[in-house]
Design a protein around this nucleic acid. Structure first.
Lengths: 334, 334
DNA sequence: GCAGCATTTGCACGCGCTTGCAAAAAAGCG
DNA sequence: CGCTTTTTTGCAAGCGCGTGCAAATGCTGC
């Protein structure tokens, strides 16, 4: 559609009887314009339906106002919620979100970051996957800010926001033991992301420290169906576990459904279940799942606050949140 | 961050020993460049980490490649899924999605569309709310394409994608009657969007046509909690309904949970429940909900295909899908 | 009325890119 | 080899905007 129907500052200037710079200044906060000129410009702009071209403005200012959100499996409850919080915070800060879908394939995140560079995004927020170091360096060198959420990377430059997964996992062990459970299990997906593995190691480590053995099972992607499969595996054993910590709520929902409907187990009487994320469904009464709440709003606020910050990078770019344990009825003795 | 660290076509040209136009043409599909020149340009670009500035390109071409997705409550399962499908299709078509959150407040969608105009989005896709006519006209006049999903508006110009809600609702009545139900109820939110109202009217109309009375209850936003409240209202009546059609799956989940856990009803023996959307949770075995599948992927494909279409607008801009009835165990006799 | 100052305005340039046009190079052909 | 035809290349203009600079304007106080 190579037409040029958008009204430009030039036309507004002509109609208002002022110079084009006056129009420009009217829409630039803090610029010097007399009230009278501003009034006439605004009036003309209104009448003509003028809107500042942010593409051109971005070109001049070297600041597009665009922030890239790089996500895979964005329709899962936790991700969707994080995206919501992020876009909301970005809008509040006068930025706008560009959303890019990635998949499991290698280089998918790199491709997304290249897109971010092409659109001269002021920043990129990576919620899934790990980009190649060379690409992140390219972004940083280009003055683009980078936020890594739960990526557990050690490179300097990006803001790294992480949860204390291992510590949280340890608290689950304590809860299970208090509930009188002795045969612990951990249900994980095969995705192997740093967060998931930290939960696994934290859980296993804490259990070992208390002298309790742990059954660990891993299967498939991090979703409901995998939770069911994991239940199949863990609940058909001779010595059935009496408490299972699922690496995410989605896994836990699948696990609980299989445990109840297929194995006729009563939760929490015969089996305690805990999850992670506190997705909306965890609060639904069919699950009423004890879980850890990811502070998505605080994460989003922190990320956006950091990336709109004019100042040079602060000393440490790493933030660590301690997730809240949300007690519900899937674990005895809350 | 008013630095200028990005490498420009000029620099690539110098390094490759060619003119700036040659660089430009190398990255413009279909432009005339000799293989040798292209090779040298690509090599230099690679070495320098050059990426075409899409802001500037959009300025020249009058085509930004940006498509705006305007959504409210984007973390609900149905919306999140639609966003996923849309971004995916857009990426496949070489476009990029800009995501804008709206809320219930008046003018929220208008604000979003203004943002779309400022970034010179090639198109806007509206998944929630209704913009003011003056704004949509402004968008269209500016050559921006518009897609309205389930908005049921009658104005010409935008592509309007709708579901046959009323017809689907009629099929539910038939199903309920076949299942031997006689006391029908409809559980709706108070949002009052065209889709929701069409489902209500379709259901009530079809039931009336079969000589069956229908209890209709409306409450709150379209979410799980409202479903619970609606169950409170509808299940405490003297003559308790034996079949309820919930306007969305989310309402249905809340309704079912309350019916089971609070009223100790067995589904589908004592109560048949049907929903709409076929969100992921509908397939979870705790619900196993009979519902209508929104063809999100087809909707997304249709929308994107239309908006990347170079041609002048086709005669009719309205597409209507017939949702598939997904039979599960929440209704007897599937 | 005028010097002295602060504020506002217009001019002109440049951000990084695409593209029409005409010149230059390459290719085809008798 | 010279000529025509095709392809490739460079030049320069311009997309819509922000902004430094100098000229113009408005104010103040004498």
């Amino acid at each position: 559609m190579p037409q040029k129907p958008f009204v430009s500052a030039q036309e507004v200037a002509e109609r208002a009887g002022v110079s084009r710079s006056a129009v420009s200044r009217t829409f630039t906060p803090g610029a010097s314009v007399s009230p009278e000129t501003r009034r006439r410009v605004v009036e003309a702009a209104e009448a003509l339906g003028y809107h500042v071209n942010h593409l051109a403005r971005g070109l001049m200012r070297n600041e597009s106002g665009i922030v890239c959100l790089i996500v895979s499996e964005m329709s899962t409850p936790y991700r969707a919620n994080l995206i919501r919080a992020m876009t909301q915070q970005l809008q509040n800060a006068g930025k706008v979100a560009m959303l890019i879908n990635t998949d499991r394939s290698d280089g998918s995140v790199d491709l997304a970051l290249r897109q971010a560079i092409r659109y001269r995004a002021d920043a990129s927020i990576i919620l899934s996957g790990m980009p190649d170091r060379s690409i992140t360096q390219l972004c940083l060198k280009n003055g683009q800010r980078l936020v890594l959420i739960n990526r557990d990377d050690d490179q300097q430059g990006p803001l790294r926001i992480n949860l204390d997964d291992a510590e949280a996992a340890g608290r689950v062990v304590t809860a299970f033991v208090r509930a009188g459970c002795r045969r612990l299990a951990f249900a994980n997906s095969q995705a192997g992301t740093p967060s998931l593995m930290a939960r696994e190691h934290g859980f296993v480590g804490a259990a070992k420290a208390m002298g309790l053995p742990v059954l660990v099972e891993r299967h498939g992607p991090t979703n409901y169906e995998s939770g069911r499969v994991l239940a199949q595996r863990l609940l058909t054993l001779g010595e059935r576990p009496d408490a299972v910590f699922c690496a995410t709520d989605l896994l836990a929902c699948g696990f609980m459904d299989a445990a109840r409907h297929q194995f006729r187990l009563s939760i929490p009487d015969q089996l305690c279940v805990a999850g992670f994320d506190d997705i909306e469904q965890a609060a639904w009464s069919s699950y009423d799942l004890t879980t850890f709440a990811q502070p998505v709003d605080r994460i989003a606020r922190e990320a956006v606050a950091w990336l709109v910050n004019e100042r040079e990078e602060p000393a440490d770019h790493s933030v660590r949140f301690r997730p809240d344990l949300v007690w519900r009825s899937s674990v005895r003795g809350g």
